[in-house]
């Protein structure tokens, strides 16, 4: 009895290690520096709908825009040359502001309380 549990535990440890390795590998892939300096386009989604697309290399001077969600929450987005980020929001956790500015396609900015996602895409690439 004891032995079979130990064997099961060993199996679970191995499975978990494999999972950790896969995660680390995919993180490395995700953060590989992008080789091409193609233009980036920021896509802003709210409730799953694309509400705005901004080609970031065409932005000369920074500006802000405010996105209001259906239930009245708002996020102030700052658009810069080659970067985008949320500078202030009235969501309870403020995690979207904490995520700062993004400059590459690695990770999107998300504000879950307002169901807002900002994602960068290289020109020519298609997501879905």
């Amino acid at each position: 009895m004891q032995q079979t549990t130990t064997r099961k535990a060993r199996l679970i440890i191995i499975l978990l290690c494999i999972m950790a390795l896969i995660s680390i590998a995919s993180l490395c892939l995700l953060f590989r520096p992008s080789e091409s300096a193609k233009g980036l386009t920021a896509h802003i989604y709210q409730d799953g709908d694309l509400i705005e697309s901004i080609p970031l290399n065409q932005v000369k001077t920074s500006y802000t825009l405010t996105v209001t969600s259906k239930d009245g929450g708002s996020n102030v987005i700052e658009v810069r040359h080659g970067a985008i980020g949320i500078v202030s929001a009235d969501c309870p956790d403020g995690l979207c502001v904490h995520q700062g500015f993004i400059k590459n396609t690695a990770l999107p900015i998300t504000c879950l309380p307002h169901r807002l996602v900002i994602q960068l895409q290289k020109e020519g690439d298609t997501w879905d």
Partner: peptide
Amino acid sequence: VAYLITKVSGVLLYLPFLILAGM
């Protein structure tokens, strides 16, 4: 749930982070 609510496939990129953090 986050994916079902936002319907943006990009949020799934958090997966490796979340797996490691969960561990």
